[in-house]
Simulated assay, not measured.
Amino acid sequence: MDKSERREGAGRVRRCIASGQTLPEIELLRFVACPGGWVLPDPAAKAPGRGVWVGASLAAVEQAIKKKAFARGFKREVKIAEDLIETIVLGLRRRCLDHLSFARKAGSIVLGNDMVRASLVTQKPAWRLEASDGAADGRKKLDGLCLAWGGVPTVGCFTGVEMGMALGRDVVVHAVLLPGRLADSWTADIRRLAGFVPLVPDDWPKDCP
C-alpha cells in the first residue's frame, strides 16, 4: 500500500501534498511525473509509477505549485507546464463525457425534452444535464418538474455538440442521468471538474435547480 494511502471506513483516503490534509480519494486528483520530469494529471488514477495527490481544486493545485510540493512528493526535480490547469480541465471533461457514453450504453440516461419531461414526472434523477448553448426557454419548461423534487443537481458546462458526440446523437440539449453505479462515477468526476470550472454558465439564473 502506498504510504500516502489509508483506509477510513469503506473508502480510501490520501494525503494532499498541498495542504497536508488526509482526504477521501474522490476529493483528490492523482498526478504522475513522466520520464522527462513533467508533472501530468492522472484523472483515472491508473498510470504506472509513483503518484502524488492534490485536492481537486484550482486553489489546491496552485498552492502545490507555489510550495514546490510536487518536487517534494516525487522526491526529485520536476517540471510544471504552463498549461497544466488546462490539461487537468480537458482530462476531467473527457472523463465526464466518457461516463455519459457508458451510461447511454447501459440505459442509465434519458435524452430529449419529451423523454426527460416524462422521466422527471416519475422519478428524481441523479443529475440534470443542459447544453450550455441551449435555449433558456427549453430549460425553463423543465425547471418546475425539477423543483417538484426539491431541485436536481444541474450541469451546463458542455455544448450540445459535445454531449451529442458522447451520446451518439448530432446534438443533445436536455438529458437526465438516472441514479446508480454509473451516476456515482460521474458524480465523483463532475465534482472534481467543479473545482476548476463553473458547472453552469455565469449568465444562467443563480437559482437554476
Results as ranks from 00 to 15, higher is better:
residue 2 D to P: 11
residue 3 K to W: 01
residue 9 G to M: 14
residue 11 G to W: 02
residue 15 R to S: 04
residue 15 R to T: 08
residue 16 C to D: 15
residue 17 I to H: 02
residue 20 G to Y: 06
residue 22 T to R: 12
residue 22 T to M: 08
residue 22 T to L: 11
residue 23 L to T: 01
residue 25 E to A: 10
residue 29 L to W: 00
residue 32 V to Q: 04
residue 32 V to G: 01
residue 33 A to N: 00
residue 34 C to S: 13
residue 35 P to C: 08
residue 36 G to L: 07
residue 37 G to H: 08
residue 38 W to T: 09
residue 40 L to N: 03
residue 49 G to F: 01
residue 49 G to Q: 02
residue 50 R to K: 15
residue 52 V to G: 00
residue 53 W to T: 00
residue 53 W to D: 02
residue 57 S to K: 04
residue 58 L to I: 03
residue 61 V to C: 10
residue 71 A to W: 01
residue 71 A to N: 13
residue 72 R to C: 01
residue 73 G to W: 00
residue 75 K to I: 11
residue 75 K to G: 06
residue 76 R to M: 09
residue 81 A to S: 14
residue 82 E to W: 05
residue 85 I to L: 15
residue 88 I to M: 09
residue 88 I to K: 11
residue 88 I to S: 10
residue 90 L to R: 15
residue 95 R to S: 03
residue 98 D to H: 12
residue 98 D to W: 09
residue 108 S to D: 15
residue 110 V to C: 04
residue 112 G to L: 05
residue 113 N to K: 12
residue 114 D to P: 02
residue 114 D to W: 06
residue 116 V to G: 00
residue 119 S to M: 13
residue 123 Q to H: 08
residue 126 A to H: 12
residue 127 W to G: 09
residue 127 W to H: 01
residue 129 L to K: 01
residue 130 E to H: 14
residue 130 E to P: 00
residue 130 E to Q: 03
residue 132 S to C: 10
residue 132 S to E: 15
residue 132 S to I: 02
residue 133 D to V: 03
residue 134 G to S: 13
residue 146 C to H: 00
residue 147 L to H: 09
residue 152 V to H: 04
residue 152 V to N: 02
residue 152 V to S: 01
residue 156 G to A: 14
residue 158 F to T: 00
residue 161 V to T: 15
residue 162 E to W: 09
residue 164 G to Y: 07
residue 174 H to F: 07
residue 180 G to P: 02
residue 195 G to K: 07
residue 199 L to D: 11
residue 199 L to R: 13
residue 199 L to Y: 04
residue 201 P to I: 12
residue 202 D to E: 13
residue 204 W to N: 03
residue 207 D to M: 04
residue 208 C to F: 03
